Amino acid sequence: MKKKISLGIKYIFLCMISFLFVFPFLWMLFGAFKSNNEIWQTPYQLFPKHINLTELAANLKAVNLYGYLGNSFFVGAVGTVLILLVSGMFAYAVVFLKSKNMDRIFAIVLITYMLPGAVTYVPAYVILAKLQLLDKLSGLIFSYLANVFAVFYFRQSFMKTSMDFVEAAKIDGANHRLILRHVILPLNKSAFWSVGLITFIQLYNSYMWPSIMLKSQEKYLISQGLRQFFIQDGAYGMNWSQIMLASTITILPVVILLIVAQKWLMAAISQDSGVKF
């Protein structure tokens, strides 16, 4: 009986903490269905009194963020695939191509992870300018390919892979490409899912660096588009129902993605992926 009471108290406490984290998102979601006056009326109410479908349709038309949303999905999807490919190959070389030089190269790469991201903006900008990749989504994706976190995560996960599988594949005549594809990838699927999910969210939500290198408004990502919508005509948030709706449209794809992919993320955590030192 005491165990049940203790367990019930724990669940109640966790539910209260969860509600504190979820409440701002609920306020934003339900605010999208309220009128501007209803948002500011006191006492504040979480749920809308009534939903005006005509006003909601007009707000959906006014919130013109769909082009920015497409740009973010393009950068996130293509960038994530390329980062997984490049980082996976580099981590494979570090772990399975035994060489002192590879360990030194990895150490140098890892040191760069300690640098603040802002210090790389100027050299990255100069490099992209010389390659004529400024103000291009392809240039933005190219600048993200050197992902130290993904390399480190994959290295730690690959180190847990038994060399017996790799040696057996070599005996069967498999080259490094086939070993990486048919041996390493299946045995580290959770690591690839975890890095892919984290990387996509990072690229989708990126703001500072895209704001520096993207000048054409039609190429803005969703975070830039949301800010542009917020300050358009110097309004600075006069119509809060539209701002709530725009924020909901911005964050909803990420929330859906997290819900769909949570089992792979939890599998990676439960398997203690990438925590071998």
Rank of each mutant, 00 (worst) to 15 (best):
L56I: 03
M1R: 11
G88C: 08
P43W: 14
M244I: 11
R104P: 00
G237K: 13
L131P: 04
R181Y: 13
F230V: 07
A58I: 07
A32P: 01
A129K: 15
L185W: 13
A235T: 13
A62P: 04
L20C: 14
V275P: 00
Q202F: 13
Y68T: 07
L214P: 05
M213K: 09
Q232C: 01
L185V: 15
N205C: 10
I111A: 10
N239H: 15
G117F: 05
T248S: 11
G70V: 14
E55T: 14
L115H: 05
V254R: 06
I222F: 04
L203I: 05
L187H: 02
Y113K: 11
L115P: 06
L252Q: 08
N205M: 12
Y68D: 12
R181I: 14
L7V: 10
S247F: 13
F19R: 05
N37G: 11
V78N: 00
V166T: 09
D135K: 11
W40F: 14
M28C: 02
A268R: 03
W40V: 13
I9N: 04
I105E: 02
F90N: 02
N188D: 02
S87R: 05
A174T: 01
S35I: 08
F90P: 01
L115S: 06
N71D: 05
E55A: 15
N147T: 09
Y236M: 12
V78H: 00
I231R: 07
A261S: 13
Q217K: 13
F33W: 02
L7D: 12
G88Q: 06
Y11K: 15
L7W: 10
N59Y: 08
D135H: 08
Q156S: 14
S270M: 14
F200A: 03
A118C: 06
S247D: 08
I212F: 03
T250K: 09
S190Q: 04
H50A: 14
H182P: 00
Y92M: 06
L20Y: 12
I171E: 03
F21S: 02
